[in-house]
Structure formats: C-alpha cells, structure tokens
Amino acid sequence: MNGIHDMGGMDGMGPVEPEENEPVFHETWEGRVYALGRSIARWGRGRNWGSFRFALESLPPADYLRMGYYERWFTVHVNRLLGSDLVTREELDSGYADASRPRPELLPAPATRGLGSGLLDVEVAARFGPADEVRARNLHPRGHTRLPRYTRGRRGTIIRENGVYALQDTDENGQRLGDSPQHVYTVRFGAQELWGDRASARDSVYVDLWEGYLEPA
C-alpha cells in the first residue's frame, strides 16, 4: 500500500536525532510489548489475522507519525487479538479475563516448507541472473508489499541472487498471498536513476526485490 510507512526519499522529516547511551527499552512496558509480540505470534495460526506489517502500515498516517514505535506495536497487537476474538473489548476495559468464555485453543500451524525467515526449501527456476538489467515494475498494490515506492519504474542491475523466499505481500485485507515462492535478487540502482541530480553519480542504493517485482529492462 502507498502508506506513510514507505518513507524512502521524503523531505521535511527533520534531522536524525541519536540518543547518547540509549537504553534497549526506554520504559518497562516497551520491553513487555516487544516480548508479548513474540509470544502471541503463534496464536495467529489459522485465525486469519492479517499480516503484522500490513496492520502497522494501515494505522492512520497521523497516528503512525505521532505514536512511538512500541505504541504502534501495542495498538496492532490489541487490534489483532480483538479481531480474532481471542480477547474482548470488555476484558481489556476491565483488565480481567472473562471466566465464562472458553479458553482459547492453539490451532495447528499450517504446513510449511519454510527454512526460517521466509526462505523456502523449494526449487524454482530463476528468471534473472547477476549483471542482468531490470526495471522495477510500476506496481501499486493495496496490500503490504516490499517494493519501495521510490524504486518503481526505475532501472537497476542485479548483483546477486539470494535464494527462494516466500512472498510476504498481502491483499488489501492483510491476508498473505500464499507462499508464492520466488527468487529474491539484490538490485543496484544508481543514485541518480532514483533521485536525479540531487544525488552523486558515484553513489547507489541496493534493494532486495522479489522476482515478481521485476521485469527485463
């Protein structure tokens, strides 16, 4: 989706502000939200809760910019738990689990050929190889995509083939489009191809892109 999250190349965001001796978590609750996210992920199995990233990207843009990182995560966790009926609004309001409701059951994980992090143990013919000239397709899906807006329609060169990965894109409701195994390539874009004369001719941006995002140039 063409959301506020897809920030590459935007102006007006101000200076980068590093913090000296920054703690891992600024508040105790931030650590709980992070750990909670890793613990509840398994409860989504088979419940059709939308992709985490799509849910983050779907926050209203003004809220996305106003909220801190872990506040965004917390909001999305709550939305997904409510949406899958694992937790009710009344429970959240009271702070207590409703004892009259049945205990949630963990659904079996879908069968997967995954090797972790989207890498798949499948053979798929590669359409492109190193040094091939490609163009990022001019795609504007309503769901989650890993094709950054600033690369669309731009020409680049494949420098590496990284293996076969499950596509992480979703439909407009945040549902995964299936594994759709595809090669992922590292594509080098000249900085001036992306940014014109605002960039140095010497510089470049490297982006890892699924095969379906690319066409021969």
Binding site: P148, Y165, V184, A191, D203, S204, V205, V207, D208, L209
Partner: peptide
C-alpha cells in the same frame, strides 16, 4: 562511493 543498503526483504 556510498552504497546504501535498504534492507526491506528478509536479508
């Protein structure tokens, strides 16, 4: 030469 790596996939 500056090389920026936008790590938006799984690598």
């Amino acid at each position: 030469e500056v090389r920026v790596w936008d790590s938006t996939a799984e690598i």
